[in-house]
Design a protein around this nucleic acid. Structure first.
Length: 294
DNA sequence: AACCAGGGTGAGC
DNA sequence: GCTCACCATGGT
């Protein structure tokens, strides 16, 4: 990976496999990025950037000197994804899912941004999650950023319901209150997977699945294996013969794939949701139902 | 009109 | 530990 500064406000990142559309828009690990005429725009951690794909990398406009490190971490550009593939070569299903989605990366979002988004995600669909996250940013955030914990903690339940949050409004307010009041997400991120998971479960609106998403997409915990309805359908039956409940699947996948569980999960999730995987007969490998990802 | 969506909570066992 | 009804909302 190479970074070349072009001006006071732009830099070129090259020599790294990265599919911005797949990673930022289609894979549902982040919900507030927007695309217009091939330019991907997003705000994170107080940084604003416009990403323009190139042949062997991308241009990043709005990237001031010193901000390269933030985006390198955010896009997880330093991890060797090819090496992860060889590490799971023993599992054909996992390997094929990985190789079908070259350029898919697992983001390292700020924990707070992932936490807000995935509390919204509970019993919801991707389109509406995107709509609600956007409404929160536009309605309660400043300069396109996520609302701060204090801002969200001080919101009225009625106001959040008006933005479409539904019964999750109170979860958001109470969790934001705990974070504003000293629940240190960065300190949780520094714990090991199990300790961090137990801590996150104390937050209202956070169960096993949401906690795993926050850990995977917002804390860099590669062992996290979030089990949603798509993953359950995709892996039930082959990931472990005795795994029946979501909890069983989550534990079995984690012990089977270790630190690579998260990337495998994300690949399987996208394949399942896009119809690239046979859900009727998972014993037989992946099979195309459509021509390719859209 | 039921059923679904990147589920969590609290009650009851 | 476990299972259940219930929780809003927009789409099919």
């Amino acid at each position: 990976m190479m970074i070349e500064r072009l001006s006071e406000t732009s830099a070129r990142f090259s020599g790294v496999p990265f599919d911005p559309r797949l990673t930022l828009l289609d894979s549902a690990q982040v919900f507030h990025w927007r695309e217009e005429n091939g330019v991907f725009a997003g705000v994170s951690g107080g940084h604003e950037a416009r990403l323009i794909p190139e042949a062997n990398g991308f241009l990043l406009e709005g990237c001031a000197p010193g901000e390269e490190a933030y985006w390198t971490r955010y896009f997880d550009l330093e991890r060797d994804y090819a090496a992860l593939r060889t590490a799971v070569a023993a599992c054909p299903m996992a390997l094929e899912a990985l190789e079908r989605l070259p350029g898919l990366r697992v983001l390292r979002q700020p924990p707070w941004e992932a936490l807000v988004a995935f509390i919204i995600s509970a019993n919801n669909n991707v389109g509406r999650i995107r709509k609600i996250v956007r409404a929160l940013i536009d309605g309660l955030g400043e300069d396109g950023a996520f609302p701060t914990p204090a801002a969200l903690a001080g919101a009225r339940e009625e106001a959040l319901r008006a933005l479409g949050c539904g019964y999750r409004a109170l979860f958001l307010i109470r969790t934001a209150g705990m974070v504003a009041d000293g629940f240190a997400l960065d300190a949780v991120a520094a714990l090991n997977y199990g300790e961090a998971h137990a801590r996150l479960l104390r937050l209202p609106g956070v169960g096993d699945k949401v906690a795993d998403c926050v850990q995977l997409f917002g804390m860099g915990h590669g062992e996290a294996f979030p089990v949603d309805v798509w993953i359950e359908r995709a892996v039930k039956g082959w990931i472990a013969p005795e795994a029946k409940t979501k909890r069983d699947i989550r534990r079995a996948a984690r012990s089977l794939f270790g630190e690579n569980a998260g990337l495998i999960q994300q690949s399987l999730f996208h394949c399942a949701r896009m119809g690239l995987i046979s859900l009727d007969d998972p014993q037989i490998h992946l099979s195309y139902k459509r021509g390719g990802a859209t």
